[in-house]
Each structure stands twice: as C-alpha cells, then as structure tokens.
Design a binder for these strands. Structure first.
Lengths: 249, 249
DNA sequence: CGCAGAATTGATACATCTCAAGCTGGGTGG
DNA sequence: CCACCCAGCTTGAGATGTATCAATTCTGCG
C-alpha cells in the first residue's frame, strides 16, 4: 500500500558507511568504492512499508544500511511463511533477475543503499571483489535457510520457540560484544504474528508455548516483549538441536 | 559406514563431460578447462554410501556427474530433515570451509568430479567465470530452499505430496524435452522414507496421502514407484501454490 | 519357496489449529 | 483526567491433522 513511500536521503560517502566492511562492498578497493558511490542513492521506509511485492519489478539492487526487513511467501489462501530476514549489511535483490521472488516488508525503519541495477550487475560480473563477497553472503544465507528447514520440518512448537529465542539471545549478546550468559535480557523486536510466520505456527500456539516456558521458569517475561533467560543452558536444552545438553562422561 | 568406498575411475576430458555446460565450469575458457582437468579426479559411490558426514572433513569440492545424492540434517534424537538434493551438474561443498554442514548420502549410483580443494578455491577466487557461475548456482539453490520452507512451514500433508509430485513430473517432462501434460507417467526414484524426510512427514502419512490421492483419481499407480497423472491441472490444484487453478474471466 | 525390505492399513494418542472470549497497555478524544 | 478504544496478546474448549504403535500385505530376489 505504501510502496511509493521510499524517501530519498542525503548522500553518504562509502568510506563513512556503517556497513562498509560487511556488505557486498567489503572487499572493494577505493577505486571500486568511488564507482559504487556514483551509482548509488539512499531510500528509506517506515515500519509496515512494502519495499516490493513478490512478482513485481524490483528496480534496484541494494544493501540494508539500517533496520530490519522480512522476506515472505504467501499461499493463495493467505497462509504466509517468512523465508528470510534482512539485517544491516544484507543484500537485497538478485542480480540477473528483474522481479522479486518474495514480499519484502520493512519491519522497522529501514534505510537501503540502492544501486542502479544494470551498473551494479556489470560491476559484479567484472570485479571478483564484489562477486566473491556476494558469493560468500549467498552461501551464508543458504546455510541459514537450510537450518531453518530443519526447524520447520522437524521441530515441535516448543523447540521452535526455544530455538528462536536462542538465536535472538545470541544476536543480542553479539551486539553488545558479549556471549550469551545466565540472566541475559533481550528484547523481542517482533510481534507474535511475525514469530508465527517465521516458525510456521499460529499466533495462539506461539503465545501458549511462551507461556509454558515461562511457567516452567525457562524464561521470564518483564513484559510481552522483554525476555530474561535465567539459565542459558536450560533454554538451549529446549531448542533440541544437540546432544550436548547432557554431560558426557 | 561405507565412507571409504569411493572408487577411482578412468579419467575423462572436460571437453567430453556430460555436464560441461551446466556445472560450475559452464563459462570456462579452454585454458581454464585444461587447468581444471589437471586438478580433478573421479569418485564413485553406490546407493546408501555416505559421501561425507555432517561435521566431518570434506577433502574435496566437486560436481555431480551422474546420480542423485541427498543433503540432510539430523536432530539429536534422530529426527531427520532432507535439506537439499544433488543432481547431475550440482556443486558439492563450500569453498572456504573445511567441514561438511550436512550428511551427504548417495541415493543412487553416483559419480563425482572431485577437484583439489585448495587449487579450485584459488581458481574461483581469481576467475570470474567460475565465481559467477557458482554464484548463479548458489542463488538458484537459495530460491529452492526458500520455496521448500514455504512447503515445510505451511502446507498440509496432502499439499506436500502433491507439490512433490508436481516437481517430479516437471523434472521428468523436462528430461524428455517436454512439458507436463495429462496422462504423464513418471517414476519415483526414491523410497517413501526419503519422501518423508524431504517433506517433514512420517512414512505412514506419506503412504496414506498417496493412497488418498489415488482413491480420488488425482493420480494413478502402476506400482508403488510409478505415478500416472490423468489430469495435470488437477494435481496442480492439490499442491495449493496458486490461485490460478481457477479460470480467470 | 521363503525371506527381508518396502509399503499399506488400522486404531489410537497427541500436538497443533480453529473459533471464541477476555485481558492488557498505551493512545486519543471528549 | 477519565473513558474509551484498539491492536496485540493470552487463555479456553473443542475439532482436526498428523504421529505413533502395531499388524498385514506386497515385492523383488537369493
């Protein structure tokens, strides 16, 4: 509905960019950076904005500079599955294809560094620095997608919730240059509905499982969006990934 | 169990290779091809062989020359999810990583063109022809993984089976340079167990849903491994992907 | 012929969904 | 300032889909 709402932004130099060393441009030389500088512009979105609809033309390729966006697919009758998350430095769009394969929606305020499609495609094709970085990033995404397939196909609702919390706890700890520890508190940036879409569950099941984990003191809720983990190990056990919850003797 | 069973093979010249124009080497020059020739050897496996276990060292990178292999992840208690299929021309292994992220198992007789890891990584790094092709292939795999996430997270057992049959029917038709049509007959190369692992179901549910589709004449079974589709449109409807089962007027 | 792996079918248990009713907290307008 | 409202969330009761456990049947093959 708000597809046209992308606002243009002041220009920023690549050298000063907060995602300079993690985005697609991570390995670029100064020379390449200035070429990128000349084919880029910034776009901003507010929460709820659809950046592009599945099947529609995506007129640019871009890097997430700030904010969070979701990738999701929808079945004819409205069932929705989130298939990816775009975080700062993640790449949006597929070189060599004109249309989007998924709905891309801003979950928070989002700023994107948008490159002219043709120009960037030529640069990717010619410059190993760009191509190799994009390959790395795509391989990482493929790994997470496959890890998520295991969760979707084989984990119980409780394990799904616990797994999501483990991931969010880790990400939050990493954000503070820390590792997950007992007593860690982290925010849920997303609604129960977004969690449900992510985990292949309904809102009600998400809510019930969170309540169950709280009743059993695996987690603690200050409010509906703030999770405390008294014992990280206990949460890990609930996620079901691995045998190493038990002591090996 | 049979990890060491890879047999060496006669050498084949890249120019004569059946996957020459679809594999990672698709865009290579003759010069590059002969360099590849010098760092490759063939390995063969029989059905059931584990090519590599998750977490173990994968000592090579390779292209599937013939046969089918499965990629799967396993939870501590044995629940298994297939996360990918390797078909002829698909690439095995991840440049820049020493260990396998999944179990790779030969589903049929398999022949792999195995490249020396270090040497191929250097070539990928330096040659856009290899890097760009691998990027394309990885992006395709990411798309299929995400499509599969929608199936795993949101489709019913019946829709999962129908979707799998649609994919297999399409692949089989394509193999015969044809498109899927009414009356199409195609073989199921895999066991019910493999289907279950692929679809996130149990063997019994797979069997029951296949029986239901047969009862309702959506499909027809000559034997347990041979499917006939009287009306392709009807099968498509059952897969649930899209609204265009109905006529638009 | 008979065996072993694969597949089907049945009965039942259980997890998750569905439908429906309340709850909560923050924002808005009277 | 209060009453109301609404989106987000929680909880309950019952329906439904899929898993589990168990018993046959089928199929290919030595």
């Amino acid at each position: 509905m708000t597809q046209g709402s992308a606002r243009k932004h002041l220009q920023l130099h690549c050298g000063d960019c907060p995602i300079r060393h993690r985005a697609i441009c991570a390995y670029c030389s100064n020379d390449e950076l200035s070429r990128l500088d000349s084919i880029k512009s910034y776009r901003s979105y507010v929460p709820g904005d659809t950046i592009v609809w599945s099947g529609e033309k995506l007129p640019f390729l871009g890097s997430m500079v700030s904010g969070v966006a979701t990738l999701s697919s929808t079945l004819a009758d409205g069932r929705r599955q989130m298939v990816g998350l775009l975080l700062p430095s993640d790449f949006l769009g597929r070189p060599g294809r004109g249309t989007a394969a998924y709905d891309v929606v801003a979950a928070t305020e989002v700023t994107i560094c948008a490159f002219q499609k043709d120009a960037l495609e030529r640069m990717i094709h010619d410059s190993p620095n760009l191509g190799n970085r994009l390959l790395e990033m795509t391989l990482d995404e493929l790994d997470s997608a496959r890890e998520w397939m295991l969760l979707l196909g084989r984990k119980t609702a409780r394990e799904k919730i616990a797994s999501l919390f483990v991931i969010m706890a880790r990400r939050d700890a990493a954000l503070h240059q820390d590792s997950p520890h007992d007593g860690l508190v982290f925010p849920l940036h997303i609604t129960r509905e977004a969690m449900a879409d992510y985990l292949g569950l309904t809102i009600e099941t998400v809510s019930r499982q969170i309540s169950a984990l709280r009743r059993e003191k695996v987690i603690d809720l200050a409010d509906a969006r703030t999770v405390r983990v008294p014992k990280f190990e206990a949460l890990l056990d609930e996620a079901g990934d691995d045998a190493d919850g038990g002591v090996i003797d």
